[in-house]
Nucleic acid binder design. Sequence first.
DNA 1: TATAATTTTGTAACAATTTCAAATATGATA
DNA 2: TATCATATTTGAAATTGTTACAAAATTATA
Lengths: 137, 137
Amino acid sequence: MKIEDIAEYLKNNGIKPSYQRVRVFEYLIKNKNHPTVDMVFRALVGEIPTLSKTTVYNTLKLFAEKNIVIVINIEDNEIRYDADTSVHGHFKCEKCGKVYDFQFDEENLNIKTIEGFDFRQTHLYIKGICKNCKMNY
Amino acid sequence: MKIEDIAEYLKNNGIKPSYQRVRVFEYLIKNKNHPTVDMVFRALVGEIPTLSKTTVYNTLKLFAEKNIVIVINIEDNEIRYDADTSVHGHFKCEKCGKVYDFQFDEENLNIKTIEGFDFRQTHLYIKGICKNCKMNY
DNA sequence: TATAATTTTGTAACAATTTCAAATATGATA
DNA sequence: TATCATATTTGAAATTGTTACAAAATTATA
């Protein structure tokens, strides 16, 4: 996605495409690394020296409200963000810390006990050891 | 489970059953309300006036390390604990805030993309509106 | 331009959690 | 029982991640 397309995408979702917002969103879709606020801030402050961490907080919170990012709570001490809003799961490796996306069949979950509830958001998190870390250690 | 049984259960899991630890675990299995640290502390400090919140933090962290409780990260601003360590999902109602347990078929997830990974913990979280809140509002 | 509205920024405030050392309790040994 | 060693609890202080807020900067509108 090009810068102009990002601006357009933000506009279509009711977000004024300020320079900072465009750059934060650009970071998300170019890196796909499920970053924390701090990771986004550190990556961008070199190119945008006036950037404030508060802006990154505000921006990501706004994106979440407008549903163009998913909030990932896989670990209790860090909030991560994902610009891929399709239904998918997240795997976090306990060794290298990397977060992987994966697909799963939502329909076959066969959920019991909570019939008649309205589902708004589904999050599937798995923790363990990734293939790469299994081989190298 | 009786007090003596709780002490025994803690011992079997490599935890010395101090008075505070037994009472915290007793709270978890009697209430099954997926409490936060603060909820446990406020519930017990009346009966154990010398109780420190640090002790509740230490105790629940120890329980999690020994795998006799599950850490629930359904919301980014609160950590909850569950003494039911069987595989099950958690539903949080966005209106009343209550956390419900539910069963699901883990085998049918049909997970792709991350073959060859070792899974250690699976968490399925759903947010939405519970049946009770749907009817009353 | 001038004015209003919005966004960004940086500091301060806040809340949850951790660190740490002293106090207390427990267990083992003589 | 007395003594010593070990483990646990406690409370204050430090740390961390996040939010609140007001001033400054930017953008949009007339």
